[in-house]
Simulated scan of single mutants.
Amino acid sequence: MHQALVILGILLMTGCQIDPYTHAPTWSDRNWYEIGVDDAMSGGLAKDRQRLALEYDDAHIDIAAYKKGYQRGQQRFCQDDFLYVWGLSGRSFPGTCENLEQTPQLRARWKQGDTGASEDSILN
């Protein structure tokens, strides 16, 4: 009887074991367009193929889709009012908006927000 209980206990314990490979995530193809949009919207500089391959551990990078997404993110991000608020939050001028035709105007608008934030912190 004692042996039966020991064997039953062992069977129950091994039956509850989780195989770590049965619940492994399945990776789908990356959306390089969306990755580009996200990189631009975070204020960062565009990444080259080598940096993307390193960060995402992926040799199959659709650099054309990434660049197209990054440009779309730049269009949405590099707006006067958005950069004013970005400056108010105390953040530095974003790399996303560097090297654009309208960079001087965008930098001036960002500076207005940055200066406003500095004056508010002095008054408080």
Rank of each mutant, 00 (worst) to 15 (best):
residue 1 M to S: 15
residue 2 H to W: 08
residue 3 Q to R: 09
residue 3 Q to D: 06
residue 3 Q to W: 07
residue 3 Q to Y: 07
residue 5 L to Q: 09
residue 6 V to S: 06
residue 8 L to N: 01
residue 8 L to F: 07
residue 13 M to C: 09
residue 13 M to F: 10
residue 14 T to R: 00
residue 15 G to W: 04
residue 15 G to V: 06
residue 17 Q to L: 07
residue 17 Q to P: 01
residue 18 I to F: 06
residue 18 I to E: 09
residue 18 I to R: 08
residue 20 P to M: 01
residue 21 Y to A: 07
residue 21 Y to G: 06
residue 22 T to G: 00
residue 23 H to S: 10
residue 24 A to L: 12
residue 27 W to V: 13
residue 28 S to W: 00
residue 29 D to H: 01
residue 32 W to S: 07
residue 33 Y to H: 14
residue 34 E to D: 11
residue 35 I to A: 08
residue 35 I to K: 05
residue 36 G to Y: 02
residue 40 A to E: 04
residue 41 M to R: 12
residue 42 S to N: 05
residue 44 G to Y: 02
residue 44 G to L: 02
residue 45 L to E: 07
residue 46 A to I: 14
residue 48 D to N: 15
residue 49 R to A: 15
residue 50 Q to N: 15
residue 53 A to G: 09
residue 54 L to G: 12
residue 55 E to M: 11
residue 57 D to L: 13
residue 57 D to T: 13
residue 58 D to Y: 05
residue 60 H to G: 02
residue 60 H to Y: 06
residue 60 H to I: 03
residue 62 D to E: 11
residue 63 I to H: 04
residue 63 I to Q: 12
residue 65 A to H: 09
residue 65 A to S: 15
residue 67 K to I: 12
residue 68 K to A: 14
residue 68 K to L: 13
residue 68 K to I: 10
residue 69 G to H: 05
residue 70 Y to V: 11
residue 70 Y to P: 06
residue 70 Y to F: 14
residue 71 Q to M: 14
residue 72 R to I: 12
residue 72 R to K: 12
residue 74 Q to G: 04
residue 76 R to H: 11
residue 79 Q to L: 00
residue 79 Q to A: 01
residue 80 D to G: 02
residue 81 D to F: 04
residue 81 D to W: 08
residue 82 F to N: 15
residue 82 F to Y: 14
residue 83 L to W: 03
residue 83 L to T: 08
residue 84 Y to E: 11
residue 85 V to R: 11
residue 85 V to K: 08
residue 86 W to G: 05
residue 86 W to H: 12
residue 87 G to A: 00
residue 87 G to D: 01
residue 87 G to Q: 02
residue 89 S to W: 03
residue 89 S to A: 10
residue 90 G to N: 01
residue 90 G to C: 01
residue 90 G to H: 03
residue 90 G to I: 04
residue 91 R to G: 01
residue 92 S to T: 01
residue 93 F to H: 03
residue 93 F to E: 00
residue 95 G to P: 01
residue 96 T to D: 02
residue 97 C to H: 00
residue 97 C to N: 02
residue 97 C to Q: 03
residue 102 Q to Y: 00
residue 102 Q to D: 07
residue 102 Q to R: 09
residue 104 P to I: 02
residue 104 P to E: 00
residue 105 Q to N: 09
residue 105 Q to I: 02
residue 107 R to E: 11
residue 107 R to S: 08
residue 108 A to E: 10
residue 109 R to H: 03
residue 109 R to W: 02
residue 110 W to V: 07
residue 111 K to A: 10
residue 111 K to M: 10
residue 112 Q to R: 10
residue 115 T to N: 15
residue 115 T to Y: 14
residue 117 A to Y: 15
residue 117 A to P: 13
residue 121 S to R: 13
residue 122 I to M: 10
residue 122 I to P: 04
residue 122 I to V: 15
residue 122 I to H: 11
residue 123 L to G: 07
residue 123 L to K: 15
residue 124 N to K: 14
